[in-house]
Design a protein around this nucleic acid. Structure first.
Lengths: 209, 209
DNA sequence: GCTAAATAGTTGCATATGCAACAGAAAAAT
DNA sequence: ATTTTTCTGTTGCATATGCAACTATTTAGC
């Protein structure tokens, strides 16, 4: 999915023009937003890294999604009524654009160029997110740890047009993304290595099939 | 997520006006579309039921998604390069609107009203799909069959604003949706019933907690 | 540069869950 | 109305995987 909208370049010139969008800055460890349902908030991560975190009824921390440059998030995409707390936590310095979906059709006061660009490119950002979500479902849908790992690695490899690629996650986070026990995943990775399916060197993976 | 765009009413009056959209009809068992990557096809299921099917390298059939009225699908949402065959199969009579994402910004020849309405409502349909995808991920992310079942039932219950609700799937398909073994799921449902967590009568479920 | 924290890597054990193989009930097809 | 197919429900068994409990290594903070 190509995205012709580089928000970080754009933002410098026009953001102050628009009455409906707002840029905010966050330091590592700060909460960017909480998912409370009802506001129709859309957030675009201009740059930085952040996680969508949930604490379940037992108090266990759970990383639902990882966000990086150009990712969109916000409770409007996540209208799921579990009675857990959801919030987005900055993993490093973050620059975030806040916008309301209510202003998707409406224009802002002086038909500003920024607003217009934002609105016309939002569907592209949504499309990219949908592809990401489908990848996640595809991977989670595999039975067995081995199948999950190989399924995900195959997708990464094809996205990189290369049998060798860098994992976008730490192994701890990868286990979380695949929703498997970390130690069980490490065991399986070892077996995959021994069986000659993959080569692994730090977070650099090479597929041998 | 409220959708103010009832495509099936709209379609009667305007569809022939638009040069870029096309309505087609399918009988049960017919293939509506295949996911080949490259066309930017978007499909809207006006009415009917259809499944996104994949045959994996072993030849196993796999139901990836179920579609019903107002759902959108198409390979543009599923740019995942596994070398499997994906296609959408009609489960009953289906009325489907075909449209290209390329015409999302562009207008069609005479600025027709239908095209305009379609374009301005597509983001709403996408939003609804994203919520659905997030629900699926939420459910798949639960460890253990019991947690998956209860997680999904809780969401269904809250969507219905009622402790009692009808399952939208057969138990066979539910197991598929939760990505667990059907017999293991049935066993767990029995235990949940015995433990007094749920009541179950055909596909009518009641939560007792 | 030192200390603390986070991540990677390993293993033994218990059990949840996949698999196979049924029979009965319900739904479609003829 | 009868047959065929699909769906539901159940059970025994084997094993994949979660869990706990470590140590080693890397990264971050002071």
């Amino acid at each position: 999915m190509k995205i012709d909208f580089n928000i970080s370049e754009f933002i410098q010139d026009f953001s102050t023009e628009c009455t409906k969008a707002q840029v905010k800055y966050f330091e590592k460890g700060e909460i960017i937003t909480t998912y409370l349902v009802n506001r129709n908030q859309i957030c675009i991560l201009i740059n930085g890294n952040a996680d969508l975190i949930r604490y379940d009824f037992k108090g266990n921390k759970n990383i639902i999604e990882h966000f990086s440059d150009n990712d969109i998030f916000g409770e409007i995409f996540y209208k799921i009524n579990t009675n857990n707390e959801f919030f987005v936590l900055a993993k490093k310095k973050c620059e975030v654009l806040f916008f309301s979906y209510d202003y998707f059709q409406k224009k802002c006061k002086n038909n500003c160029k920024f607003h217009e660009a934002l609105v016309s490119n939002l569907p592209n950002l949504m499309l990219k997110k949908m592809v990401d979500l489908n990848v996640h479902i595809e991977v989670l849908s595999k039975r067995g740890i081995r199948e999950k790992i190989l399924g995900y690695f195959t997708i990464l490899s094809s996205q990189n047009l290369n049998k060798t690629f860098l994992l976008p996650y730490s192994f701890t986070d990868l286990a979380d993304y695949l929703n498997v026990d970390r130690s069980a995943m490490m065991r399986e990775l070892k077996i995959l290595k021994e069986d000659g399916f993959i080569k692994k060197n730090g977070n650099k993976i090479t597929l041998l099939y």
